[in-house]
Write a protein that binds this DNA or RNA. Structure first.
Length: 578
RNA sequence: CGGGAUGUAGCGCAGCUUGGUAGCGCACCUCGCUUGGGACGAGGGGGUCGCACGUUCAAAUCGUGUCAUCCCGACCA
């Protein structure tokens, strides 16, 4: 490809609406063009990158024994009603009506469709196991799309679904997919961590996420991991060893009594007022889970992990209660307490969930639903109702101890580029998707699902590989392998070497761009760095010595060699990709 | 949906306080000059100033409303 013909426009400045590195770089280097919030045109360079990621995914999925198909992204409401998700999925589902006023949606994921395909075609145990996948655009009406391709409303995803006769089969396929994923991300030039995670709206029991670890702002997930063993988990799922109960060994409240604690609305104020560590306070928080109030109890120095709490409460939507909702709850229960003085007493018919940390507290301080008062010297029997739910709802903090080996946990930011779920019979059961076993009896398939964000993976690669000058594409997913820059296109000696190199590389199967523009060298160098060609061959003044320069984008290394050597180096690098 | 900000040419911005012929840089077109890290000069094309209503002789500028976009929280590949 001649640079003068390449359909790309690089910009002198970063787009003003871009926040994270990949969005800034991809916008400025002319890879993407925004059409609407979270909706982007993939310009030719971007599309080449995406096709490369797709092909790596495709090759590894095929190698792992999966079969590619393509399902519609326009889907009828009926299937979503069968699974129960027409209601549950909420406003994230892009809904539309056809001309007959029939409800449809644009597919955010395809469990419903694949399950219906399977139940019509997979009748016998002899046909199982099978793993089907597709690569296509997905639609999710995100509350707040942002970060460019990292969180779009329309994005490209590979989704795979496995069908097995039993759990053992699923376990095996799950391992198989985990290995394939590892290979895929390695081939894309990305270091990933496989971490335990919550299974979220898609459902199921066990799930892992593949995280690109990054120090940029784009990492939306906190990943806790152990340096000593291989434990790692998303913060929404991470656990740690239960912290010790007592802090400094002193016995603060041996006697149970109600004390005046005026204006102590926060834990800080209360612990300062009573001159006690916050580990001696039982914190009561009101959440709204599926529109109903839930009270969460936890030792006051710890924070609530909302996803864990939501799961413990058996809900699908959670948020902290507003001041007005708390006031309403208090009024309903006949109390007069402001936030800061809430407690579990007298909360009949309200779900109360107590974190594990609560259970090794003694002689502690707790709110009693009376403003400006707290009960001190309280114990579990005094405050916990009979039907309290004990659960781990604690947000793990850095330095807490690994649940497996007991060493301190570290935390880092991660971009989720893929995940794998054990679905079990979550979809096959309600949708009556069954096979017949050897005895003629029917059973629901045991399913798994496996996603990779193709466009997100490409953006994550930019997050992981860039410098202040631009992108440093890993060779395997770079839009082109190399660019040839003749410094001065008026110079016949330079041009003839550049042209010859261009032809020979092209014929050898190297994807190469010849920068034949009549621009000053600086402009071409800036563009080469910004676009991120892994190799740049400069044909300039050293041509009088019979040498060209080869610059390696990733390392910045610059070597002078003959055109023949430069050619061979690049061909070798490209050939070593497989 | 709550909180904050912004809408002026493809991109980045000024002008608005104090109403009076819509500007700058980049990009684009022409010519000259230049050619190893985003040169320079001259000329040129492109905008109903987000939209609506109002105030006024006159609105990018003032007022009201509305729409959109971006940022901070809950969602997720």
């Amino acid at each position: 490809m001649k640079m003068s013909k390449l359909f790309v426009q690089t910009l002198r400045e970063f787009p003003s609406d871009a926040e994270v590195v990949s969005h800034k770089m991809l916008g400025r280097a002319g890879f993407i063009k925004k059409l609407a919030p979270g909706v982007y045109t993939y310009m030719p360079l971007m599309w080449r990158v995406l096709k490369k990621v797709e092909n790596i995914v495709r090759e590894e999925m095929d190698k792992a024994g999966a079969q590619e198909l393509l399902m519609p992204f326009v889907q009828p409401k009926e299937l979503w009603e069968e699974s129960g998700r027409w209601e549950v999925y909420g406003r994230e589902l892009m809904r539309l009506k056809d001309r007959h006023d029939r409800d449809m949606c644009l597919g955010p994921t395809h469990e419903e469709i694949i399950t219906s395909v399977a139940r019509d075609n997979l009748k016998s145990y002899k046909q199982l196991p099978v793993n089907l996948y597709q690569i296509q655009s997905k639609f999710r009406d995100e509350i707040r799309p942002r970060y460019g391709l990292l969180r779009g409303r329309e994005f490209i995803m590979k989704d795979a679904y496995s069908f097995d006769i039993d759990e053992a089969g699923l376990d095996k396929e799950y391992e198989n997919m985990a290995l394939a994923y590892k290979k895929i991300f390695e081939r894309c030039g990305l270091a990933t961590k496989m971490v335990q995670s919550d299974s979220g709206a898609i459902g199921g029991s066990v799930s892992h996420e593949f995280m690109v670890i990054t120090d940029t702002d784009a990492g939306e997930n906190d990943v806790f991991y152990c340096n000593e063993c291989d434990y790692s988990a998303n913060s929404n799922h991470a656990v740690s060893k239960l912290p010790d109960a007592v802090v400094d060994g002193k016995d603060y409240f041996s006697k149970k009594e109600i004390l005046d604690t005026p204006s102590t609305h926060s834990i800080e104020e209360l612990s300062a007022f009573l001159k006690i560590p916050s580990t001696l306070i039982l914190k009561s928080l009101v959440y709204i889970v599926d529109k109903k109030p839930v009270i969460a109890l936890i030792r006051a120095d710890k924070a609530i992990e909302e996803t864990k709490l939501m799961n413990a409460a058996g809900g699908i939507e959670i948020r902290i209660a507003s001041a007005a909702e708390i006031a309403e709850l208090m009024q309903e229960k006949g109390f007069n307490a402001e936030p800061g003085f809430i407690g579990p007493n007298g909360m009949e018919n309200i779900k109360i969930i107590a974190d594990e940390t609560v259970y090794n507290m003694k002689n502690f301080v707790v709110g009693i639903n009376e403003t400006d008062k707290h009960l001190v010297g309280a114990n579990l029997d005094d405050v916990l109702p009979k039907d309290v739910i004990k659960a781990d709802i604690r947000l793990v903090e850095q330095g807490e101890l690994c649940p497996v080996c007991g060493r301190p946990l570290s935390v880092t930011k991660g971009i989720e580029v893929g995940n794998i779920f054990k679905l079990g019979t979550k979809y096959s059961k309600p949708m009556n998707a069954v096979y017949t076993d050897i005895n003629g009896k029917t059973h629901p398939y045991v399913m798994g699902c496996y996603g990779i964000g193709i466009s997100r993976t490409a953006a994550a690669a930019v997050e992981a590989h860039h410098d202040e000058h631009g992108i440093k594409w890993p060779l395997a997913i770079a839009p082109y392998h190399a660019v040839i820059v003749p410094v001065n296109i008026q110079d016949e000696a330079q041009m003839s070497v550049a042209n010859a190199l261009y032809e020979v590389l092209k014929n050898a199967g190297v994807e190469v761009v010849l920068d034949d523009r009549d621009e000053r060298a600086g402009v071409k160098f800036k563009d080469a760095d910004l676009i991120g060609f892994p190799f740049r061959i400069t044909v300039g003044k050293t041509i009088s010595e019979g040498l060209v320069e080869c610059k390696i984008r990733e390392s910045g290394e610059l070597i002078k060699l003959t055109p023949e050597e430069a050619k061979q180096n690049i061909i070798d690098a490209v050939l070593s990709l497989q």
